[in-house]
């Protein structure tokens, strides 16, 4: 089956189509859902592959356990639910039954951070990356558009071991072409500048970061823009090189700064004795709430304007 080429699709459609391509090639690929098949966009997989799509009902912990058992049998299970449940409710199951057992379970947490919008604070994961980063050897990825979903899901499939995918479900403007190649542990350099390094993560933030880079340019500030994509492992070489070049780094994430990308990058720089002025765009020790995306991006100071202000304040120091 040909690879997905039409990228004017929702990110969940990219997720499902890629899984369908993989499943057509490999009978080991199975999909699990906990009554969110419609939300995750995997209904077409069920229509095409029948019993290889397993809806366990509203039972996320059970879903991760079942996925682990399927992995014992040599299947490659892709299990999805909202990120809040993927990380918080199934944490011990994913930790012990999947990761400690060194199995091959791919867990997808949808609606990252503020993209949970009207579902509000109960459904708004600002802590999933933080929790997942504590699991040894786990791969953590967050794509930023449909093409990167396709590429990263294929990398998850190839990787022998557990992965966590932080998946924005809706459409997001294309950043990459359909033939772009993605790798675990590799970020993408989207713009090379010499004043400040902006490291973004995920669909919502990469749009803000790209917009911020444009605004800064109008003010004569030349930003480097990195799409992190792989939170664990981080792209050490690219991040260290660009941090060294500019000496000013702003991490931008739709997640708590503590435990998230900001802390991961800070630790990397500290470990390598790269001393930078650091700024953090992200959620600062707060719970989620309801609102539309625009409202929430502003409420948590995640906007392009916030990124610009942070960058400029660091450059003045």
């Amino acid at each position: 089956m040909a690879e997905v080429k039409d990228m004017d699709i929702e990110m969940r459609q990219a997720y499902c189509r890629t899984l369908m391509e993989l499943a057509a090639e490999d009978p080991r690929v199975v999909v699990l859902e906990a009554d969110l098949m419609k939300a995750s966009g995997t209904m077409p997989f069920k229509d095409a592959f029948g019993k290889r799509a397993i809806d366990v009902g509203v039972a996320e912990a059970d879903m991760v356990g079942i996925a682990s058992g399927l992995s014992v049998q040599g299947f490659i299970p892709f299990a999805a639910t909202f990120g809040c449940f993927a990380a918080r409710r199934t944490f011990d199951q994913f930790f012990i039954s999947s990761n400690y057992a060194k199995l091959n379970v791919k867990l997808t947490g949808t609606d990252p951070g503020v993209s949970a919008v009207y579902n509000g604070g109960t459904h708004m994961p600002f802590e999933d990356i933080g929790l997942m980063r504590m699991i040894p050897d786990l791969v953590i990825l967050e794509p930023s558009d449909a093409a990167s979903v396709c590429g990263l899901v294929r990398e998850m499939y190839k990787h022998q071991g557990c992965c966590y995918l932080r998946l924005h479900r809706k459409k997001s403007p294309a950043i990459y072409g359909p033939d772009e190649k993605f790798e675990i542990g590799k970020a993408k350099l989207l713009k090379d500048g010499n004043d400040v390094t902006l490291i973004g993560l995920g669909a919502v933030m990469m749009q803000e970061v790209l917009k911020a880079a444009g605004l800064l340019e109008k003010e004569g500030i030349n930003a480097t823009v990195i799409d992190a994509l792989s939170v664990k492992p981080l792209d050490r070489d690219l991040i260290l090189a660009k941090a060294r070049e500019t000496g000013v780094v702003v991490t931008c994430e739709n997640h708590q700064v503590d435990g998230g990308l900001g802390m991961a990058v800070t630790k990397l720089l500290a470990d390598e004795n790269v001393f930078c002025r650091m700024g953090y765009i992200g959620v600062q020790d707060r719970f989620g709430q309801v609102g539309n995306l625009d409202y929430l991006v502003k409420a948590y100071n995640l906007s392009a304007d916030d990124i610009c202000a942070k960058a400029k304040s660091l450059l003045k120091k």
Partner: peptide, 16 residues
């Protein structure tokens, strides 16, 4: 946790 994993193993056997 074990019974869920056993369900996955048994379901996998059915698929196979």
């Amino acid at each position: 946790q074990g019974l869920s994993a056993a369900c996955g193993i048994a379901y996998g056997a059915k698929l196979k």
